[in-house]
Each structure stands twice: as C-alpha cells, then as structure tokens.
Nucleic acid binder design. Structure first.
Lengths: 310, 310
DNA sequence: GCCGCCGGTGAAAATTTCCTTCACGTCATT
DNA sequence: AATGACGTGAAGGAAATTTTCACCGGCGGC
C-alpha cells in the first residue's frame, strides 16, 4: 500500500494537513504558486484559469495542454492538497458547476427577441416558478377551504372559461370527473347560460377569468348565482365585476407581461395551481370514493398504452 | 483521440442525443427510472440520493455499495446520458458542489389525506416549482431549437394529444394561431390520422404524450412521419415508442406521483413549460409577423372585457 | 576547468480504474 | 414444457492514473 508521508502529525494514514479544498482553489493556487517549479506553475495556472475545461481533460491531456508531463500534473495535484489527479479533477468539476450556477440568477430580465433559446427556457421557467410562489402566497386558504367544501358536496358542477381559461376549466372538469364528481367545462357562452339556469342550491358554478371582467363568463355565473347555486370565481382581479356574483373568490397572481410573454402564460400557470389545489382538496374530502376512482382510471388508461415500453 | 461510438445504430431512437447533463440529474433519474431494470434503479437511486458520497466512489465501490456489478453501474451511467462512469462521476461532483453551495435539498413530504389545506397549497406549489426546474434543466436546447425552426417554417401544424395532454395541445395551438401560424389541435384519434395523411414535407406534426406510448397519439405521428412531415414529440419517456417516429424529441420531467397527486398534474406543468418555450421561440423567429398579431389579439380581447358586464 | 551533487523534469513501467465481451440465470411467452 | 428475450455479473481487455527511474542542466567544490 502507499504510504505517503507528508510530515503531518495527527492524521491516521491519509494525507496530512489540508483536506481537499472544495472551491477555494484559485486562492490556493496563488498561495502556493511561489513554491512551485515552473512547469507546475503552468499546470496550476491552467487549472485555475479554466476549471471547467481542465475537468474535461485527462492527465495526459492536461499534460499536453500545458506542455508538461503527466508526472508533473500529478505532482501539482498533490501540492494543491489532493491525493492525486483524479481527485483534483473531481474538485475541478465541482468548482465549474458552482460558478456555473452562480452565474444563473441573471435571468430575471425580460425575454428579448434575440435571446438564445437556452435563455428563453431559463427565463420562462424562472418566471413561472415566481408565479407559482406568488399565487401560493396570495391564496386565501379560508376561501379555498370553503370552495373545496362546496365542490365536494356538489350535486353538479359547471365550470366557465373562455379563451386560455377554457383549458383550465377543462382541466378542472377532467380531474373532478376522474374522481366521480359530476363536473362540466362550459366553453360556449350560450350553452353556459342555458345550463346555468338549471342549477340549484346544491350545485356549484365556477368561473375562471384572468381579467375578472370577461362578460362571457360573468353572465353564466350571475345566472347561477341568482338561481341559488354556490359560485366560485378564480380570477386575477378579485375586485373585478366577476366577484360580485361569487360566493368564494380565489385570487390568482398577476405577473408582469411583455410583448413576447403574453399574460395568458402566467395567468394560466397560476390558475392551474389553484385548480390543482381545489382538486386535491376535494379528493381529500371525498377520499373514500376518490381513491378507488383514481385507481380505476389508472387501470383503464393502462390498456390504451402499447404493451411494452420498458 | 478516442473514437468510442456506441454501436446502437438500429434506431437513433433512445435518448435524443442529450449532451451530458449538467445538474439536472435528479430529474433525469426520475425521468428514466421507469425504463431501468431493478439493479440499475438501485444504482440510480444511490446516485441521486447521495451525489457527494457516490462521487467519492470508484466504479467497483459503487457496484459493491449497491450490490450490483461494475457493468451495471456503467450501463446506468450510459443511460443517464454520459459516455461512461467517469463522466457521471464528474457530474456528480458538480452536483454535490452545487447543492452544497445552494441550500438544503429541501425534502418534500407527500400530500396526505389529512393535510390541512394550507399545506396542500404549499406542497403543490413547491412540487410544481420543482417540476419546472427539472424540466428546464433537462430540456435539450438543441432539440428545442430544431423544433422551433421547424414550427416557424411550417406551412401547417397538427398537434396530437389525448386526455390531459389534449389541453396542452390546445394551448399550443391557441398560442400559435394567435401569431398567425396555422396550428390545429387534434383530439380525436381518427380525425388525427385522416388529417395526418395530408401532411407533407413542409408541415409539422407534434405529439404530446406523457407516457410516450399512447397509441392514439403515436399512430397519427407515425403517419405524418411517413408522409415526410417533420415530427416533434413532447414526452416524459424519451425512450418510449413515440420517439421512433419523432425527428425531435422534447423531454418533460416526471415527478414522483402519489395517490392524491396523479402524474397528470406535474406532467401537465412540465408539458406547458415546453409548449411555452416553443411558442416564445417561434414568436422570436417570426417576430415581424408575430408582434403585430399579438398586439391585434390584445386589441380584439379588450372589447370583450367591458368594465360593466356586457 | 573538471567533477559530482541535486532539484526539476519527462518517458515509460506498474497499477488502478474503467469498459467490453460473453456466458449464465431468470422470467415471460407460446 | 420448451423457447426466447432480457437482465445480470464475472472475467478479460483498454484506458486511465500513479509510480519509478533515468536524464538534463545548473551550481558549488575540488
């Protein structure tokens, strides 16, 4: 076995004084540079200058790059406090990752026309995450709880939404249907109204509108409200007209929009979170029936998927 | 100069030529876990669970730790998108450093039946945020860029999706239509196929399926593919059958699901992010026509939002 | 001025680590 | 029950890393 002796006292067999430095590498290089020979300095310099690049190289590669030999590279690694080149390389990779992630937070800017695609992804993801956090923070859990209760006890549920919100309405309806709750997404304003007339006190109507003032959605909600149904509004403008006819108002967050980033994008994210909360809440309340229903729908789906995928 | 070319010529299929992932490893593990064998899963689990610890291990060590063989470890590394174990280990070190500097990994408890509603909101929001981060990290920007190019230049775009993915398909279609691009969301499998026959080389077909093996969606994509259209798949299982007929595969992340949190929930979040990225990318490329179109659609909507209802 | 010591250096051997091939066991299918 | 496909690990081969060792150039002593 190897018995590298480095004059350190305390340690058991291992390397003496320094534990493998995690990220203070550049500093270490500068500190130790004077005590290095010329070739070693070249290696250390390369390593400190481009951690990511060097991490991709093998001993031989780094030796060639710096015009030195493999032995020198290993010696340098030792001097920097690592057992060998392998470990230096590992630390190097860590360092690279670290300064990569450190660079990340600079994505708060708006999306520009000439942004590279990678930036677009980062910015969109970041924005949507922000939207989620805002929505969660701004949600009134009391209202949410009340809405859940109403939904869980409903005989029939009608959900109104047009445009982008129509998809959210459908999403909610789909989910509720899956756990055996009679929910219908209404896209067509006329149908919505004519159906709203049929709602009674045990029923629930849900209106989804970002602006809070979409006439096509407010109208059926009003009708439902006046017929005694419990009404829920999911809107980004709780002070808008829609709240007038809503027993429970759930507020979605409103992120800033830009030319390339229409409001529909973040409002949808926000609305979907609310819808998910409603769904999970309802599923909890009706767990006895929801659980088998969910299981059954998995089962049914399995048969639509081709036999093998593994 | 190594010339290692893993011989899988049979179908380019498999993983869509992903570059070594930077730090989206946990996500990748979750994405690919289903397509792994038991032993590989053990390895992947160990790796995802303790990146720092595993980075310190050699192939043999990790094999012993997981009670498998070296070959299995290497296979797992390959599956995760690295050329071999060495590179996985490097990435692992990077990940470890990253989550060292960043704060706690933040554990998420599952949603329980008796969670208070406030917890449900918090957990859902957190999970969806996580999903977004994972998706963004795991997205292959090269594939994305290629998909964007295809969409921007398309004469006609058909989008297939059933179930929860149908909503995502509609979302994409809606958005593209708004900037003057002829996109249609196809819900009905029969209609999808009959329309797919009409597609030609300048056209694009998009299939959205979480499982990657939804026959109703694969079939039209296949037809489109065989008729020379450019095909894009948005799926959580890039190794699934759907990729077979896809020129470009965009991978969505797969969060762990639980009884109260069906897969549809996070997959939808993930899919929507991808769709948003596509949309913004296309809007960038076609800015000349997209900008006025977007402005015009705002204008048109404004009239539906009367301060007073109707 | 010549010689020998010595640190610095790299080429090549030695070793570890990693990767590939192949054969065996297991499970599912027919 | 036979067959085939697949997952799995053991052993051998390739590549990496580490160690050894010999060379080179400079410096001081003889």
């Amino acid at each position: 076995m190897k018995e590298i002796f480095t004059g350190g006292t305390g340690g058991n067999g291992g390397n003496g004084g320094a534990p493998p430095a995690p990220a203070a590498l550049a500093a270490k290089v500068r500190t130790l540079a004077p005590s290095m020979t010329r070739s070693m300095q070249r290696v250390a310099e390369a390593v400190a200058g481009d951690p990511a690049g060097c991490a991709a190289l093998t001993v031989t590669g780094l030796a060639e790059l710096t015009g030195t030999s493999e032995a020198t590279v290993v010696r340098t690694a030792r001097l920097l406090g690592y057992p060998g080149y392998r470990d230096l390389r590992l630390a190097l990779a860590g360092l690279a990752a670290q300064q990569q992630s450190g660079r990340a937070p600079a994505v708060t800017a708006d999306i520009a026309v000439d942004d590279p695609i990678a930036d677009v992804v980062a910015k969109l993801a970041y924005d949507e995450q922000q939207t989620l956090a805002d929505t969660a923070a701004g949600l009134d859990t009391a209202q949410l709880g009340a809405a859940v209760s109403a939904l869980a006890a409903a005989r029939r549920i009608d959900i109104y939404g047009v445009g982008a919100s129509a998809l959210v309405a459908q999403d909610l309806a789909q989910k509720l249907l899956r756990i055996g709750i009679l929910a219908h997404a209404m896209g067509d304003p006329h149908l919505s109204v004519t159906n709203a007339v049929l709602l009674r006190s045990k029923d629930v109507a849900v209106a989804i509108t970002h602006s809070g003032s979409t006439g096509d959605v407010i109208e059926p909600l009003r009708v439902a409200f006046e017929h005694g149904a419990t009404t829920i509004a999911i809107t980004g403008r709780p002070d808008g007209p829609v709240s007038q006819y809503a027993d429970h108002v759930l507020t979605t967050s409103t992120a800033r929009e830009s030319e390339l980033r229409p409001a529909a994008m973040s409002s949808r994210t926000s609305q979907l979170l609310v819808v998910d909360c409603l769904f999970v809440g309802v599923a909890q309340r009706t767990y006895e029936t929801a659980a088998p229903a969910l299981a059954a729908s998995y089962e049914a789906l399995a048969h639509r998927h081709s036999p093998r995928s593994r």
